[in-house]
Design a protein around this nucleic acid. Structure first.
Length: 432
DNA sequence: TCTGGGGTCCTAGGACCC
DNA sequence: TCTGGGGTCCTAGGACCC
């Protein structure tokens, strides 16, 4: 049996924990550059705001309907996530942290009434860190996701599902008829792994509901739609095909990409941006003890400005020696950028991707008979990471990243950022 | 004026090999 | 007349996830 624990409207709920005045208020959290809505409170959803809605299209609701918008505060959300995960882990023996706001817990061998146990854990998360959650329980991960969907909607859309399923829904504790009635009441696109494209094609074939999909012939689905959907069908029937991954596998690629706060035309600004993106990507690389064998840089203008001259280009470089050294990677990234840049374009976005990753245990340190250069670089990077971790991002950086006063233009806009309540002593909430 | 960021897996097709 | 069969690796593109 698996549980899926999921924070409701996670980012919006994180903000509410520290600003209770936002309770009951339509609230959205905006993406980088305050570009579009990436989280919505129930009240905001009720206003018809869609996931990903551009801010400039909904900002009138601030005046018309009291909509509050906040810039994404990822330091806060990451910290709240850790707290929620450690509490959710108490549900069972093994946990897979699936995303910032949800985790699977393996309940094999857990005795007693699982529904009751889930309710208790849910109440604890609510009381200890202020985060509302819903929990789905079922014999497979796909069904647990679906049970979670039912728990959420039974709570917020009365009539969609029986009210007693609100907050905690245990599909594994129901008899067949009851479970099938719930699957029949669920549109096929709500199933985990069935997106827009697939659901459109399925519906054209007469497969409208989760129950229709569960009843499809596995071999036929395998042949016509591929192995992923075939596994989904089996999982919907209670046969586990997806196991729990306790340790997230090391990433196979690491990216750092950003849209700019305003259009960038100068190579000098792009150079600063690319240096910073490379530095950030290299930090992530070293954190998972990997080396990159390839590096890719891209720059592009805004596809939302079809009236302007468009330019989009990328260059991939194979490194002669795999590396995690910020200076080395930056040098190559800059070389790539130079071949891409064309004057006269308004660039809107750039990015750096590190690929062909391998474990740094296999690092070739060279013979270095006289000069232990690689060893020095290794320690230098360790020191750099330590300083930036303990004294804040950007404490030490490459000169080509630019001095703070010259780094305007490409930096992102965050005009509605809340304090880092849980990760900055200076931002502690004062009670009294 | 104003539209995010970061991943994964699968498939098909081509190159190449024996 | 009839021109194998099986395998690997790589890449690009598509679909999906949060």
């Amino acid at each position: 049996m698996y549980a899926l624990v999921d924070g409701n409207n996670f980012y919006a709920s994180c903000e509410r924990v520290f600003r209770p005045s936002l309770n009951g208020v339509p609230l959205v959290v905006l993406s980088n550059n305050d570009g579009c809505a990436i989280a919505r409170s129930e009240e905001a959803k009720a206003l018809g705001i869609k996931m990903g809605a551009p801010w400039f299209q909904i900002r009138h609701l601030a005046e018309d309907a009291g909509l509050v918008a906040l810039s994404a505060n990822f330091a806060l959300y990451g910290d709240m996530s850790e707290r929620m995960m450690s509490l959710a882990a108490g549900l069972g023996q093994q946990q897979e942290v699936y995303s910032i706001d949800e985790c699977f817990v393996d309940l094999h061998g857990v005795p007693g009434d699982l529904t009751e146990r889930a309710r208790q854990v849910r109440a604890r998360i609510r009381q200890w860190i202020g985060m509302p959650t819903c929990i789905g329980l079922a014999p497979t991960k796909t069904l647990a996701k679906l049970a979670n969907h039912m728990a959420k909607n039974a709570e917020r859309k009365p009539g969609s599902y029986p009210a007693e399923l609100a907050q905690v829904c245990h599909l594994g504790a129901m008899d067949r008829a009851e479970r099938e009635a719930l699957l029949a009441a669920t549109a096929v696109q709500e199933v985990w792994g069935v997106g827009r494209q697939t659901s459109a094609k399925l519906q054209a074939e007469g497969i409208q509901t989760a129950l229709d999909l569960a009843r499809a012939d596995v071999a036929t689905v395998r042949r016509r739609w591929g192995i992923v959907l075939a596994k989904t069908v089996q999982e919907l029937n209670g046969t586990p095909c997806l196991s729990l991954d306790e340790l997230p596998p090391a990433k196979q690629q690491i990216a750092c990409t950003r849209s700019f706060g305003e259009p960038v035309t100068e190579l000098a600004s792009l150079r600063q941006a690319v240096t910073e993106f490379t530095s950030r990507a290299a930090e992530k690389l070293r954190r998972q003890h990997s080396l990159a064998g390839q590096l890719m840089v891209f720059i592009r203008t805004s596809p939302f400005r079809p009236d302007e001259r468009q330019h989009s280009a990328h260059r991939q470089i194979k490194l002669s020696t795999p590396s995690s050294d910020t200076a080395c990677l930056t040098e190559w990234a800059q070389a790539a950028l130079h071949t891409l840049y064309q004057p006269g374009h308004k660039y809107a976005k750039a990015g750096v991707m590190l690929m062909d990753l391998q474990s740094s245990a296999s690092e070739q340190l060279g013979l270095a008979l006289e000069d232990d250069e690689p060893g020095h670089r290794h320690r230098l990077m360790g020191t750099l990471d330590h300083l930036n971790q303990h004294h804040g991002r950007g404490t030490v950086l490459l000169a080509s990243a630019g001095m703070p006063q010259t780094r305007k233009g490409w930096k992102m806009k965050q005009e509605r950022l809340t304090p880092q309540y849980t990760t900055d002593w200076g931002a502690l909430v004062v009670a009294g």
